[in-house]
């Protein structure tokens, strides 16, 4: 009986994945230096058909983490774009950094970047990561991610919603699909 219920849930559960989540957002052509580098890297990596992400919390408030986690839920299902989270920076193509870089994590963030095989794209997720956010200036905070490691894509927001993260990625990777 319990098995029936389980398989009912598995096979006939609601399907809510939203087709529009990674719609071709404003893919501008003024890509800048970081963008040009990005293009070249992606061209070498089969247009980024498989990009593996390593999330790095450099001092966020954990709201960003909840939103990154939400990327995997049935509504957004970022895996259908060939994205996935991996456990080791050694496996990663993208570092997604959240939060203003705090002093206590500055070295760890550097280590993580160093541990990842290059080319490795860095995405700053959230206001804190993009510019330090409201924490800017504090004795315990270093500031935006680009003060520590190079940043290729910035996704502002406090925190950016999963849809915004996907759109930001799509714009950055220029992957309208």
């Amino acid at each position: 009986m319990s098995f029936v219920r389980l398989f009912q849930t598995l096979l006939t559960g609601p399907r809510v994945t939203e087709p529009a989540a990674l719609s071709p957002a404003a893919t501008t052509d003024d890509v800048g230096a970081a963008g040009a580098e990005l293009r070249a890297v992606l061209a070498n990596l089969y247009d980024g058909r498989s990009l593996r992400i390593r999330a790095v919390d450099a001092g966020s408030t954990n709201a960003e983490e909840l939103e990154l986690l939400a990327l995997g839920n049935a509504y957004y299902d970022f895996e259908r774009f060939g994205l996935s989270f991996v456990a080791s920076p050694r496996h990663a193509d993208i570092l997604m950094v959240t939060g203003p870089v705090v002093r206590n994590l500055e070295a760890a963030l550097r280590t993580t970047y160093d541990a990842a095989p290059h080319p490795c794209l860095v995405v700053a997720v959230g206001d804190g990561a993009c510019n330090g956010g409201i924490w800017r200036g504090s004795y315990a905070v270093v500031g935006a991610v680009d003060q520590v490691i190079p940043v290729h894509i910035r996704i502002p927001g406090d925190p950016p919603s999963p849809a915004e993260i996907l759109q930001g990625l799509a714009a950055g990777l220029r992957r309208p699909r």
């Binding site: 919390d57 001092g59 939060g99 203003p100 994590l105 504090s138 004795y139 905070v141």
Partner: peptide, 11 residues
């Protein structure tokens, strides 16, 4: 812990 210490109480 205290990796994400941002100095909230001071701020």
């Amino acid at each position: 812990l205290f990796f994400t210490h941002k100095g909230v109480e001071k701020l």
